[in-house]
Amino acid sequence: MKKILTVLLISVSVTFLLSGCRVTTIEQAIIAAESNGSIPRLNHDNTIAGPDKDNNGIRDDIDAYIATLPYTEIQKKAVQQDARALTATLTVDKMDKTAVIAANEKLTRSIGCLHFQFDSDTASKMFADNQKMTVNTKNRFLEYEKFNSALSGSTWTLPDRETSCDN
């Protein structure tokens, strides 16, 4: 079913591009922007974690996006750490308070790592981008809501940025 949808979307895209590229609807604008790569083509299936063929804890489409970023390898690892931590917030058992807190600690450390590897504005943008691309369907959003709800009322201490990166 997923392959059929993908083929359909590509067909529509090709048809649209061959038709002279006159964009009159938002749908066409999305297709055009994703087709020419100005917006990453993200996975929007019904699963929570999404495809992760290399089992690195990051959705493959986000992995591919991070690979295109104009940053050093160590900086990309920081972005990957954050994407991995965000994905884990979706898949963690929300009834397991200890696990939720641990997932939040990893997420906080990953943000600290971004702030260690990037200037403040870029670090903020990297986190915001990872969040919007990871939590990019209603199902994923609802899981993320459960995670944040489970943390409501809690407090935590920001770790040292210098020791926040996994590698």
Partner: peptide, 16 residues
């Protein structure tokens, strides 16, 4: 604003 439902299914726009 997008009858196709493409935007409504893409929550990256929701965050924006």
């Amino acid at each position: 604003i997008d009858k196709s439902g493409q935007m409504g299914n893409r929550f990256e726009y929701f965050w924006e």
